[in-house]
Nucleic acid binder design. Structure first.
Lengths: 205, 205
DNA sequence: TTGACAATAGGTGAATATTCCTATTAAGCG
DNA sequence: CGCTTAATAGGAATATTCACCTATTGTCAA
């Protein structure tokens, strides 16, 4: 945690609430100039740090927790993962071409950022992945991770279908997605039919 | 985040590294008396806050991240979960009577504290819970949670055996633990034979 | 354009944290 | 016990942040 990280975190916190650093200070009952760029280092270039008490008042004023601010300071992502239902996930407008969630308005589920990966949560419906995933379970999905055969993945087809499967085979001619539930057959796709594959990192139990 | 939370977090950080508040200050190159209880409020009872710069130096000295400290301040647990192998888990001295891990020296796995639960991680060996858990998967276990039939649980028997199972039945006369892998039979225990049951919250995929 | 307001720079005094000092108490050790 | 060290309390001097002040610039809307 360095001097510049603190100020970057403070700016990010302000931006997260639609405020400027100045507006954030005003809202916290502090002097509006307290977070001025000119106040972030002394005349001799010595770094200036906001006091812990000022940080506490800022966090109080916007209703954020200390840990959320710290996540901003550390520059980590994924402390909060957006939660999406499979029914919604099939609709357009929820993911970009790379499989990352876009837009807002989702419920948020507190999830532990692993490293710096960008993740989101999906709520399971259906029984094709029983017994590993039961309806209502939540899975944490990383659209940025590499997938290899054997991984549990979320796939989106060009038809808009979103499903959690086991990646059985993947080559230039075919992408095979297996269900754990033997009542469901393995489905075979041609690569162009799969819009994206995202690896499942965690599953609630 | 309140005044007492900051100081509690600082004490917890020190304790986490086997130090006192005084020792932590010394290690950070600060005055050893800087964190004295007598310096935590002024003569008039006005609260005193450690400066952000002092916090930064403290975190630097012990190699902790700001977010870890914030988790301590917020009173949340589980940002870091100790990782234990099943082979070790069966030995004595790794858990207390309530099923909480004790002692130290484990590898630590970064895990996202959900709520305020105390959690730890176990690495799966064996195939009795295939296909849900494969050897090498990591499960996040909460010894403090209530367990009910249908939950995936970790159980420890009086024989010292530690296993991940599905809780099939639990009443005053019997505790039935089922495997997901049909090749393994359901095992039935009498309640006194089970030392503790801990619910599995998450599983890596 | 003009007016109101936000954001910002720069400076000063007040408020407050830290260091440095001394003294006391407690804990470990030969 | 006697010795050393850590932890702590209390106080004074120093260092730094904050609130307050003034002035400038930019934005937005009437």
């Amino acid at each position: 945690m360095k001097h510049r990280d603190i100020w970057r975190g403070l700016d990010a916190l302000a931006a997260h609430h639609g405020l400027t650093a100045s507006g954030l200070a005003r809202r916290a009952g502090l002097d509006p100039t307290a977070f001025n760029p000119s106040k972030r280092e002394g005349a001799d270039g010595r770094p200036r740090w906001p006091s812990t008490e000022s940080l506490a008042r800022v966090l109080e004023s916007v209703g954020s927790r200390f840990e959320d601010f710290a996540a901003l300071v550390d520059g980590r992502r994924g402390a909060i993962a957006p939660l999406i239902g499979f029914a919604q996930a099939g609709q357009d407008g929820f993911f970009d071409d790379a499989g990352f969630p876009v837009g807002g308005g989702w419920e948020e589920v507190r999830f532990p950022g692993l490293e710096t990966e960008s993740v989101y949560a999906l709520e399971i419906s259906g029984d094709s992945m029983e017994p590993a995933y039961r309806a209502g379970d939540r899975i944490i999905v990383s659209p940025g991770s590499e997938v290899k055969p054997g991984d549990r993945v979320v796939a989106k087809t060009i038809d808009g279908e979103v499903m959690a499967k086991v990646l059985a085979r993947k080559n230039t001619r075919t992408v095979d997605l297996a269900s754990l539930n033997p009542a469901y057959p393995t489905r075979s796709f041609k690569p162009p039919e799969i819009v994206w594959l995202a690896r499942i990192l965690w599953a609630s139990q």
